[in-house]
Amino acid sequence: MHTSPVHVPVFDALRDEDHPGLELRHTVAEDLWERARGPAAVADEVRARVREVVDRGARAVRCTRSAIGGVAEATAVGLAVLESTPRPTAAPVEEGAARAGRSARVRAVSAEGAWACFEAGDPAGCARRVADAADAVTGADAIVLAQASVAPAERLTTIRVPVLSRPRAGLAAAARLRHPAPRRRAGG
């Protein structure tokens, strides 16, 4: 579920690279873009749209707008992965580290001018600015690209630490719901 059509080719490209043959159905609700700045204003509509795509057969629902992601996650159907703000990105990183018995300190870094490129319909310029910002990061063990709109920057970075994209990871999680790994037999 997207609030902008620019996310459709991003997820199609990720699917083609990592999960060929996986069926994706995109629901674009541009009308939620401005109203989603206050999630309470669109909560009922988001819940209804999530239920609708699940009723049509979706096994996973991925929201690419943080303001509606929390509402979608609370709908308790399918899978919602939050995007686009530091807190929804930091929480899963910190929780994953804790489960592994480690700690993680997450810091947000802004890519100057990237949002202006995105709004101007220049996804390549947006990705380039994000990649440049990632390459300028020092003292990090990994970089997580939070927003779906910046996932293409993952391929443009030259930094030596791993660069991970939440959209790629979220799509992989959704794909596992569709094609779960085979279970091992006991004793074999």
Rank of each mutant, 00 (worst) to 15 (best):
P180S: 07
R176C: 12
R56L: 14
V77W: 12
L171S: 04
W115E: 07
L82I: 10
L14E: 05
R87S: 10
G70Q: 11
A74W: 13
A104W: 05
P9G: 09
H26D: 09
V81E: 12
R107M: 12
V42Y: 03
R37Y: 11
R102N: 14
A172Y: 01
C63F: 00
I159T: 06
P88W: 04
R184I: 07
A169S: 12
V77A: 14
A136W: 05
D16Y: 02
F11D: 07
V6R: 11
A173K: 10
E34K: 05
G78T: 15
A29Q: 05
S84W: 02
D12Q: 13
A136H: 06
A186Q: 08
I159G: 09
D12N: 06
H19E: 06
R128T: 03
C117H: 14
L177N: 13
G101E: 09
D55E: 03
A151K: 13
R183C: 06
P167E: 04
G69W: 08
A76P: 04
A43H: 04
L82N: 14
A186C: 13
S165K: 04
V163N: 03
R178L: 13
W115K: 12
V137W: 02
P180F: 13
S165R: 00
E94T: 02
R15G: 12
R15K: 03
A74L: 15
E119V: 11
E73M: 15
G70C: 01
V6P: 09
H2V: 09
V93S: 05
H19F: 07
R178K: 11
D16H: 14
A131N: 12
A48D: 00
S103E: 15
R168N: 04
V28F: 01
A80Y: 04
S103H: 07
R25Q: 05
A43P: 01
T89A: 04
R105M: 10
G139A: 10
A142D: 01
E34S: 04
A114M: 10
R25S: 09
R107E: 02
T157F: 05
V71W: 06
G70N: 14
V130K: 01
S149P: 03
A90I: 06
E154Q: 02
V42D: 00
V42P: 03
A60S: 14
G139H: 03
L82H: 00
R65H: 06
E73P: 09
Q147A: 02
R185Y: 15
A29S: 07
R99C: 05
A36F: 01
A80W: 06
P20V: 12
V161M: 06
A124T: 09
A13F: 01
L14T: 00
D55K: 08
P123V: 01
R128L: 12
I143V: 08
R62A: 13
A98R: 15
F11K: 02
P92T: 15
G101A: 02
A98E: 15
D122V: 01
P39D: 14
I143A: 00
A146G: 00
